[in-house]
Amino acid sequence: MSIRSQLLKGILDGCVLAVIDKETVYGYELSEKLQRAGLKDVSEGTIYPVLLRLQKNGFIAGEMQPSESGPNRKYYSLTEKGKDALNEIRTEWELLANPITTLLRGE
């Protein structure tokens, strides 16, 4: 595993939560949004284990619904518990990101 994907692994849950927080999405949309945000390293398939885990933890709720274009898709939205978790991740990330950036830049 590359360093980048190892680093990403710990924070991917938070990124997924942040996307779903903005609007209800289905799997393909989610991976497109992650890619467009610049996370090209996220192999599209890896979002599915993440989505299952987040559902198990009760952070997101998924519902199968007929889509406009026909097939049933599973749409995900954030639960209250998920919102709390996302806020916590945001705070934790802020606490780490600044000192680490400073350190690694060698300033």
Partner: peptide, 26 residues
């Protein structure tokens, strides 16, 4: 069955964009 349908629909969308299953699922 839900996750299987999700992955299938994902692959179908990706296929339309010219991607292979290996591109999508590794």
């Amino acid at each position: 069955e839900e996750v299987l349908v999700e992955m299938l629909e994902h692959l179908l969308s990706a296929q339309q964009d010219g991607k292979t299953a290996e591109d999508v699922f590794g």
